[in-house]
Each structure stands twice: as C-alpha cells, then as structure tokens.
C-alpha cells in the first residue's frame, strides 16, 4: 500500500524548529508567572488579598 500523502499545510523543518522554540519560550514565560504568583503568595501570606488602591 502506498504511503499516505499528508493533507493540509505541511511545515518545513525550519518552521517546525521555530515553532518549537516559540512554544518553549511561552512555556518558560508561563512558568515564571506561576512561580511569581506562588512566591508572592508565600511572602504576603493572607495579606495577598489586601491590595490597596
């Protein structure tokens, strides 16, 4: 049986590599955000909900 032809948009190796780099950068940025919120919660304790205007 013949190999199935890929349907739709096929990314080149360069495009796949760049997409992977961008995905990792987004993951790192989200990770930093999570760590930041966690650390501030530890620092402020219950006062984390006290946000003066």
């Amino acid at each position: 049986m013949d190999e199935e032809q890929p349907q739709g948009i096929v990314l080149t190796e360069a495009q796949k590599k760049k997409r992977r780099e961008r995905s990792i950068a987004i993951a790192v940025a989200l990770g930093i955000l999570v760590v930041l919120f966690f650390a501030v919660t530890l620092v402020k304790g219950p006062a984390v909900l006290n946000r003066p205007m």
């Binding site: 948009i9 990314l11 080149t12 360069a14 760049k18 780099e21 961008r22």
Partner: peptide, 12 residues
C-alpha cells in the same frame, strides 16, 4: 498560500 511564521524567539 497561508503564511507560516518563521519568527524566532530572538525576533520577539
């Protein structure tokens, strides 16, 4: 053709 981004992290 659809435009596929090749922007790297350095570009951002």
């Amino acid at each position: 053709p659809p435009r596929i981004s090749e922007a790297g992290v350095g570009d951002y």
